[in-house]
Amino acid sequence: MEKIIDIRHLSKSFGDHEVLKDIDFSVEKGEVISIIGSSGSGKSTLLRCVNLLETPSGGEIIYKGQNILTTPINIASYRAKLGMVFQQFNLFNNLDVLSNCVVGQVQVLKLPKDEAEKTALNYLNLVGMSQFINAKPAQLSGGQKQRVAIARALSMQPDALLFDEPTSALDPEMVGEVLKIMKKLADSGLTMLVVTHEMNFARDVSTRVVFMDGGVIVEQDVPEVLFNNPKHERTKEFLKRTLKENYSV
């Protein structure tokens, strides 16, 4: 399998606080990886380090054979290759739904406008938002915003899509509509890296689950093994607590 991203000895500190400690982690083409763990375990920071929204303190991020932390690669064009979906959606408030999906293609990828609009419409259709192309983000519900945000990321035709707790800011009814789309994307073979608290998604959709705690990767495996036979005490404890919560609802 072709490795898209290979992370070696990655570390990140905010002042004296070491959030990520010596992380080794790689993403292969077509994988759907769920990163789980309690709040403050460093999973969001890891995701944000991957597309350099946070500058790592040490280590290597190797993308297509190049360490992007040392080679003078164009950071902007590297980021354009990795789509990002945020917890707070972060749609461009000044642009309508269609322009949200077009602006990056035209300004960053330098595609002609009509081609960009066609691509955008295709993905808006995929997430079921093509009827709302004239709406502004403020006029949409949370679930609709997140679906547009996914279409915006897809419109850039990225190598992989990063999701930073995409359903955490949504009310329970809207979580489903977003997860359904994410499952559709996973089934289509898109490479995905998902930081999530949705244990059902992690178990049923992902090809690999990564459990993080205290800034290190404690354990990673296929979901059947990690959920049914976790090796580490910490993983068992976390799963016991979260799964109980998930089912008691």
């Binding site: 929204l53 354009a80 789509g83 990002m84 972060n90 850039m156």
Partner: peptide, 13 residues
């Protein structure tokens, strides 16, 4: 909101 900067940077602007 900082999220607007981050989203713009994330799509490569």
């Amino acid at each position: 909101d900082n999220g607007q900067f981050e989203a713009a940077h994330a799509i490569g602007m």
